[in-house]
């Protein structure tokens, strides 16, 4: 193993990393383990209904897409399964510190993607905007910092410090 120096800042990143990952991974846990009816189109708990509540003040091109999806139940179901799967995969990767940069980018897109659709919702504390902007900014930060402490990326880095190379281009997965 190569000798690796870890910056001080890197050692404090896990303070946020696991919480951030859990915000997404727990969405999968809630829908698949805690309350499976959330993904049952026949149930009144079906999360598809949430999309309906986004409609009134969703931004204009997004609103049209949401209406289209709501009028095609199969499409809606596929969308929910895909979104839940992405939350599970990227969330777990963030918690484990595996391919943190890729996960950070994915989570930033998921979080910010909620902004034009559900960003106007929030009866207590302009909630959805806070979720979208804080989680988006945090995830983007991890895309830039990567993860060099208490992470699988740390192990990968110590074994393969040069990362993945395709030709002369280095892909900074860790």
């Amino acid at each position: 193993m190569a000798q690796v120096t870890i910056e001080t800042t890197q050692k404090f990143l896990p303070v946020l990393r696991i919480t951030l990952g859990w915000m997404f991974f727990s969405a999968f846990v809630r829908r698949v383990i805690n309350v499976p009816d959330k993904l049952n189109p026949q149930s009144s708990l079906y999360v598809g209904g949430k999309i309906l509540t986004f409609l009134p003040h969703a931004w204009s091109p997004v609103k049209g897409i949401l209406i289209w999806v709501l009028e095609n139940p199969t499409l809606l179901y596929d969308f929910l399964i895909t979104f839940t799967a992405l939350e599970a995969i990227f969330g777990l990767m963030m918690i484990l510190g595996l391919f943190t940069r890729l996960s950070g980018f994915g989570l930033a897109m998921l979080a910010w993607g909620m902004g034009p659709a559900a960003g106007w919702l929030g009866s207590t504390c302009v909630d959805e905007w806070q979720i979208a902007s804080v989680e988006g900014a945090a995830a983007l930060m991890f895309m830039l910092t990567g993860s060099r402490w208490l992470s699988i990326d740390q192990i990968l880095y110590s074994k393969y410090p040069d990362g993945i190379k395709i030709g002369k281009i280095r892909i900074p997965l860790w």
Partner: peptide, 12 residues
């Protein structure tokens, strides 16, 4: 990141 945060805040 700041632009997205402020933009969503103003537009929404």
């Amino acid at each position: 990141a700041t632009g997205v945060t402020f933009g969503l805040y103003q537009i929404n």
